[in-house]
Amino acid sequence: LTVHVGNVTYHFDNPEQAEEWAKRMAKKYQGQIHVKDGQFRIE
């Protein structure tokens, strides 16, 4: 699973971990989480 934050990409084996990280990053950067094809993108 991949989480994109700006132009930085993080890889996770565990979906719960990826989702948790995406939520934390979205809160930190006050962005929206977009989920597409098993990838999380924070914008």
Rank of each mutant, 00 (worst) to 15 (best):
5 V>N: 02
29 Y>K: 02
41 R>Y: 15
42 I>G: 04
32 Q>R: 08
43 E>S: 06
8 V>Q: 11
2 T>F: 08
14 N>I: 09
30 Q>A: 09
20 E>Q: 11
3 V>Y: 02
10 Y>K: 04
37 D>L: 02
31 G>C: 15
35 V>S: 05
8 V>P: 01
41 R>D: 07
38 G>R: 01
39 Q>E: 14
31 G>F: 08
33 I>Q: 03
7 N>I: 08
6 G>K: 05
14 N>A: 08
2 T>Q: 09
39 Q>S: 09
31 G>L: 13
37 D>N: 06
38 G>D: 06
25 M>Y: 08
34 H>D: 07
1 L>G: 13
39 Q>F: 05
34 H>E: 08
4 H>Y: 09
27 K>M: 13
21 W>A: 04
31 G>N: 03
9 T>E: 09
6 G>M: 09
34 H>L: 14
32 Q>F: 08
40 F>P: 03
9 T>R: 07
15 P>N: 07
29 Y>T: 06
17 Q>A: 14
34 H>Q: 11
11 H>C: 15
18 A>C: 09
24 R>Y: 14
18 A>F: 06
5 V>R: 02
18 A>E: 01
32 Q>N: 07
12 F>H: 00
11 H>P: 02
25 M>C: 13
9 T>K: 07
34 H>C: 07
21 W>I: 01
22 A>W: 05
42 I>K: 02
19 E>Q: 09
13 D>F: 07
2 T>H: 07
20 E>A: 12
7 N>D: 08
19 E>C: 14
25 M>D: 01
28 K>V: 06
43 E>K: 04
26 A>M: 05
33 I>C: 13
26 A>S: 05
13 D>G: 09
38 G>A: 02
21 W>L: 03
37 D>E: 06
2 T>P: 01
41 R>T: 15
19 E>N: 06
5 V>M: 08
6 G>T: 03
43 E>T: 08
4 H>E: 07
38 G>K: 02
9 T>H: 06
22 A>D: 00
10 Y>T: 01
31 G>A: 13
19 E>L: 15
43 E>R: 03
43 E>N: 03
7 N>T: 12
17 Q>D: 13
2 T>N: 06
27 K>I: 13
41 R>K: 08
10 Y>P: 01
23 K>C: 13
24 R>K: 14
30 Q>H: 15
37 D>Q: 02
23 K>F: 10
12 F>P: 00
8 V>T: 11
34 H>F: 14
17 Q>M: 11
23 K>D: 06
6 G>N: 14
36 K>M: 11
25 M>F: 08
20 E>P: 00
8 V>C: 14
